Amino acid sequence: MRFAAGIEYLGTRYAGWQAQRHATGVQAEVEAGLSSVADQPIEVVCAGRTDAGVHGLGQVVHFDSPVQRPPHSWMLGANTRMPDDVAIRWVQAVDDAFHARYSAVGRRYRYVIHNARSRSALWVNRAAWWTYPLDASAMHRAGQTLLGEHDFSSFRAAECQSRTPWRRVESLSVRRSGAFVVIDIQANAFVHHMVRNIAGTLLEIGQGKRTEHSMAAVLAARDRSAAGITGPAGGLYFVQALYPPPYHFPAADGESALFGSACSEPGSNSAD
């Protein structure tokens, strides 16, 4: 049978999603947990690989197993054998045509910025700390330039292995929640470091180092050196993989704990 599963994880102590030869990846922990339930090796395929230090609220994987287990047994059994910073939140049986990566029609990420003069002990490695005041409204307006299908070479890491830099951004919002600025972005797919490089450019716009109108020139340059810094990994969360019918999976219930839903009013600079 083929199963889909929703995975939640704090990426701080991992070398990324993918299993590494000399470092632990989240994938290895998930496979070890599921393999213990099956009593034989289980391999998983994810919707979107995340980098070292990046977190997952709603990562989706699929796996095949000849062993018959109820969905809740996969979830409960694997969770007892995985570390506390990785958890399976749900498991569903799916048809053989489902593929966690290739069946997905979109992905959502959230980037969280702690905008305060002093650093936070509670948010270290869970939000990017930016000490200079940020204009969330200017960041939101600048981000609208990226909507649609474009060549995102300016926001693409040099080591990106994708065959094309073209991606379609369907929504991008920036809003303030007290001392935090939250960037939500949805696209059909992302090139390597795309969200972190967009976040870094928006940070410079929010600080006033760049104008909000400069985003168009950055995009048109198709040159990574034209964009801003790469935002710290700890601020980035994989929120959701989107699938067409008949696949309907639970939304990540941890999203609301990170400053509400993506549908919240964007661009506000007022504190809650």
Results as ranks from 00 to 15, higher is better:
A4C: 13
E8D: 10
G11E: 01
A19C: 13
Q20I: 09
R21I: 14
H22V: 06
H22N: 14
A23M: 08
A23F: 09
T24G: 06
V26M: 09
A28I: 07
A32V: 06
G33A: 10
G33H: 04
S35N: 10
A38D: 08
Q40R: 15
Q40D: 09
P41C: 08
P41Y: 07
E43R: 14
E43W: 10
E43D: 12
V45Y: 08
A47P: 01
R49D: 08
T50A: 08
T50S: 07
A52T: 12
G53K: 06
V54C: 07
V54D: 01
V54L: 07
G58T: 02
V61N: 04
H62M: 07
S65D: 08
P66G: 11
P66F: 08
Q68A: 14
R69D: 05
L76H: 11
L76N: 12
G77M: 06
G77S: 10
N79V: 03
P83D: 04
D84V: 13
W90G: 02
W90N: 03
Q92C: 03
V94I: 05
V94S: 00
D95M: 02
A97N: 11
S103R: 03
S103Q: 05
S103H: 05
A104N: 03
V105I: 15
G106F: 02
G106M: 03
R107S: 00
R108D: 09
Y111F: 12
V112A: 13
H114C: 11
N115S: 14
A116M: 09
A116P: 01
A116G: 07
R117H: 09
S120C: 08
S120N: 08
A121R: 11
A121W: 10
L122W: 09
V124A: 13
V124K: 12
N125I: 01
R126M: 14
A127W: 01
T131L: 10
T131S: 15
Y132I: 14
L134F: 06
D135C: 12
H140Y: 12
R141A: 10
G143H: 03
T145H: 14
L146V: 06
E149C: 12
H150L: 07
H150V: 05
A157G: 15
C160V: 07
R168C: 14
R168P: 03
E170F: 05
S173M: 01
S173Y: 00
G178L: 12
G178R: 11
F180Y: 15
V181N: 05
I183M: 15
I185C: 02
A189T: 07
A189C: 11
H192F: 13
M194V: 05
M194Y: 02
V195I: 15
V195C: 04
A199M: 12
L203Q: 00
Q207T: 07
G208N: 08
T211G: 15
T211C: 11
E212M: 14
S214C: 05
S214Q: 06
M215A: 04
A217E: 10
A217G: 08
L219T: 00
A226R: 02
A226D: 04
A226C: 13
A227I: 02
G228S: 11
G228D: 06
A233I: 09
G234F: 09
G235P: 08
F238G: 00
V239T: 00
Q240P: 01
A241Y: 01
Y243C: 02
Y247W: 15
P250Y: 05
D253F: 04
D253L: 05
G254E: 04
G254M: 04
S256Q: 12
L258I: 15
S264N: 10
E265S: 15
G267K: 03
S268V: 15
S268F: 03
N269P: 10
A271I: 11
D272Y: 11
